[in-house]
Amino acid sequence: MTLEQMMDLPGALAAFSYTDKGDITGHQIREGTEITPQILDLLAHSCVANIAVATLEARGWESLTGQKGFEPLQGFSMVGLEWSVVVSDHCGVILKNRDVNYEASFNAVQTCSA
């Protein structure tokens, strides 16, 4: 799925791709939103950090409790007041909370080819 296709998700405000270090490699922002390229850059870096921390927690949890099912991690989402960002390893999408479909969004970012 491309960034353009991710912008077709219900409530999509922006879509972006990023490197392992969190540097933006491509982005789309819907006109009229408060999202800026600078916000996307910060978000991408936080996404890399959050996925790394979540992987640590999932691995530790599975080892300690014996409960399986978290690894390999599929993605992470931060839920803000008005919008949520859903990310996987290299792609993310920002969606209005009132329209967001988390499952469809996680599926979209996992198949992102940007």
Binding site: A58, Q67, F70, Q74, F76, V79, G80
Partner: peptide, 20 residues
């Protein structure tokens, strides 16, 4: 960096695992 950008205050988060 962008006051009233719609993210603050954060309401929650989701970790999406393979089966859970």
């Amino acid at each position: 960096f962008a006051a009233n950008c719609g993210c603050k205050p954060m309401q929650g988060w989701i970790v999406r695992g393979a089966q859970a």
